[in-house]
C-alpha cells in the first residue's frame, strides 16, 4: 500500500522529519503517537502533498507508484485521504457542493460517470447517518462555524463519501466527546476492509480501544524511535514519553 524509505523533510532550513521508514500493507492499521511537535502532522502533510516542505527520500511509493511525482489532487483521487487535525473553513462554499465536486472528481478519475442529483443525495444521506452528522451541517459553508467535534465528524463523513484506500487520521479524536468518539470510530471501522489501510495519529490510547491498531509507532524528533503492537500504546499511556526521551538521549 505505502512504502516510505528514508524520508527527510524540512521547512525554512529546519529539519522536521529525519529519516522516516514505514511499510504499510493492505488491511493494516498503524497508529502513530508521539509528543507535541515531533512531526506527526508534518508526515501526514508531506504524504498528502502540501508543498511547504523541502523533501528528500530514497523512495515513497503508494500503490506501487512514485507518490512524490503526483499532485495533491491526484494522490487524493488515487485513494489517499487525510483527515485534518485542523480542518479549514471555506466561507460561502456550501458543504453539499464541495463534497459533490469532490466525489465527481474522484469518479471522473476512475472513468465513472458523474452521479445524478438523486444518486448523490441518497449516498450522502447514507454516509451522514454513518457518522451521525446533522443534516443542517451539509447546507452550511464548509466547516464554517462548525464546533470542534462537528469538524472532525465532517472529516470522517467526507472520508466515507470518498472511500479512500489509505486514510490518514490526524488526531481525529481530539475534540470529540465520548459518544462522538465511538460514533466516529464505528464509522472508520465500517469502512475497513482487507484492501484498505489507515494511519491513525493520536495522543490517546482510548481511540485505539475502538480502532484497534496492528502496529503502534512512536515518532520523536522526526524519527520513528519505537514500533510495536497495540500494547505499546498502553505502555505509553501509563508511562508517558520520558523513558522514550531518555532512551533517545534527550
Amino acid at each position: 500500500m505505502l512504502s516510505i524509505k528514508n524520508l527527510y523533510a524540512s521547512v525554512e532550513g529546519q529539519e522536521i522529519l529525519k529519516g522516516i521508514n514505514l511499510e504499510i500493507k493492505p488491511g493494516e492499521v498503524h497508529a502513530i503517537m508521539g509528543p507535541n511537535g515531533s512531526g506527526k502532522s508534518t508526515l501526514a502533510n508531506v504524504l498528502a502533498g502540501k508543498d511547504d516542505y523541502e523533501i528528500t527520500a530514497d523512495e515513497i511509493t503508494f500503490l506501487g507508484e512514485n507518490l512524490l511525482d503526483k499532485s495533491p489532487e491526484t494522490r487524493a483521487k488515487d485513494g489517499l485521504f487525510l483527515s485534518f487535525q485542523y480542518p479549514v473553513e471555506i466561507p460561502g462554499v456550501p458543504m453539499v457542493n464541495f463534497i459533490k465536486t469532490a466525489v465527481n472528481e474522484h469518479r471522473k478519475h476512475r472513468g465513472e460517470k458523474e452521479l445524478t442529483a438523486g444518486e448523490f443525495l441518497k449516498l450522502m444521506r447514507k454516509k451522514m447517518e454513518l457518522v451521525e452528522l446533522k443534516t443542517k451541517l451539509t447546507n452550511r459553508s464548509v466547516n464554517e462555524g462548525f464546533s470542534g467535534g462537528e469538524k472532525k465528524k465532517n472529516e470522517i463523513f467526507q472520508m466515507a463519501m470518498l472511500e479512500p484506500k489509505l486514510a490518514i487520521l490526524d488526531e481525529t479524536d481530539s475534540g470529540l466527546d465520548i459518544d462522538a468518539l465511538k460514533t466516529v470510530a464505528n464509522g472508520v471501522n465500517a469502512l475497513k476492509s482487507p484492501e484498505t489501510s489507515s494511519i491513525v495519529i493520536t495522543h490517546y490510547q482510548r481511540l485505539l480501544d475502538y480502532i484497534v491498531p496492528d502496529f503502534v509507532h512512536v515518532l520523536y524528533h522526526g524519527k520513528i524511535v519505537k514500533s510495536g503492537g497495540k500494547e505499546l500504546a498502553f505502555e505509553l499511556e501509563e508511562k508517558g514519553y520520558d523513558w522514550i526521551k531518555k532512551e533517545n538521549g534527550n
Binding site: A48, G49, S71, P72, E73, F81, L82, E105
Partner: peptide, 17 residues
C-alpha cells in the same frame, strides 16, 4: 490545499472559493 486533498484541482478550488 484542503480542496486539493479532496481531489479538487487548484483552478476549480479557486473558482469555488
Amino acid at each position: 490545499f484542503y480542496c486539493n486533498q479532496r481531489g479538487i484541482d487548484t483552478e476549480t478550488a479557486i473558482g469555488m472559493i
